[in-house]
């Protein structure tokens, strides 16, 4: 320990987005380590994607005698309703896991008692959130692949391979927009003890307003208008259309532009809310309380 100062000083000089990314990566690995330390979580991880889809498929099969639905084809141009629902719920899995997984990050740290310690490290305040977002993208992304793969094998869902590229771009845009929501969620749970209720509301509303398992056309007109303000609404259609129709998916460019615009708004608002909340919590000295 003779070169004490220099080791710390060397670390001090490592700044910038690359060091933030490394910290974020460490956070995502840490969450994997913790998740995998629970014996059942691997089972859950494999089963989860199907546990969303199967009740949906069962419910659909109660109102449709075959694989094709004339009314769905009228509204969306896709007549194979299982494909429609399977792709939609795969995306929903990713969104829900991001919203709950990432949004509740700080609350979980608070619960296990590590939040204050984390906040004494030089990692950027927003990195804690998107670092865990990184984990949830890995986690949720694997889930999407798993579910789509199984849907193809079990339900005979077909996917246009070229569509994977625009679909990935859509997911990227979607995840960025969701970060805005996640910042807001993180702020809520940091402040309010009953925050999960609001989160449940927010999450369920986002899902309700998005064409994940049904086209927006079946929503009441007022809700249809509200849906236009959610990146998830644009993203869900664009994602599915890409995977079904490939590069020639209708309205792809328009959806992506809309998402870009909405992402900017969501990120800005979410970021400001988070920063403000963080300040407030620090002035209250309430980081460790819940």
């Amino acid at each position: 320990m003779d070169n004490d100062e220099s080791f710390n000083e060397r670390l001090m000089s490592r700044r910038g987005w690359r060091s933030e990314f490394r910290a974020a990566w460490a956070l995502s690995i840490k969450t994997w380590q913790i998740e995998l330390s629970y014996p059942l979580s691997i089972l859950w991880f494999i089963l989860m994607p199907f546990l969303w889809l199967i009740p949906m498929v069962l419910a659909g099969s109660a109102v449709s005698s075959g694989a094709n639905s004339a009314s769905l084809a009228d509204m969306t141009g896709i007549s194979d309703w299982i494909t429609y629902v399977a792709i939609g719920t795969a995306l929903m899995g990713l969104i829900i896991s991001t919203l709950w997984g990432t949004g509740m990050t700080l609350r979980r740290e608070q619960n296990v008692g590590t939040l204050e310690t984390l906040f004494t490290t030089p990692v950027g305040r927003t990195t804690f959130i998107w670092g865990n977002g990184l984990h949830n993208i890995q986690h949720g992304g694997l889930g999407v692949i798993l579910q789509l793969g199984a849907s193809i094998l079990i339900f005979g869902v077909t996917i246009n391979a070229w569509g994977i590229f625009p679909a990935l771009a859509v997911v990227a845009l979607l995840v960025i927009g969701m970060q805005g929501v996640v910042y807001a969620v993180a702020s809520i749970v940091l402040v309010a003890k009953q925050g999960w209720m609001l989160v449940e509301f927010l999450g369920s509303t986002l899902v309700l307003l998005a064409p994940l398992s049904y086209p927006l056309a079946v929503l009441p007109p007022l809700l249809q208008m509200a849906a236009a303000g959610s990146p998830l609404s644009w993203g869900a259609d664009a994602f599915r259309n890409s995977l079904v129709f490939g590069l020639a998916a209708p309205g792809l460019i328009q959806s992506m532009l809309m998402m870009l615009l909405l992402d900017a708004v969501y990120l800005l608002v979410g970021g400001i809310v988070y920063k403000t909340t963080h300040r407030w919590v620090r002035s209250r000295g309430a980081l460790a309380q819940f």
Binding site: M56, G60, S64, V85, Y214, V218, L219
Partner: peptide, 13 residues
């Protein structure tokens, strides 16, 4: 979501 999906898939039939 369940009701909406069933409406969308089932249609009038």
């Amino acid at each position: 979501p369940y009701l909406l999906m069933m409406t969308a898939i089932g249609g009038s039939a």
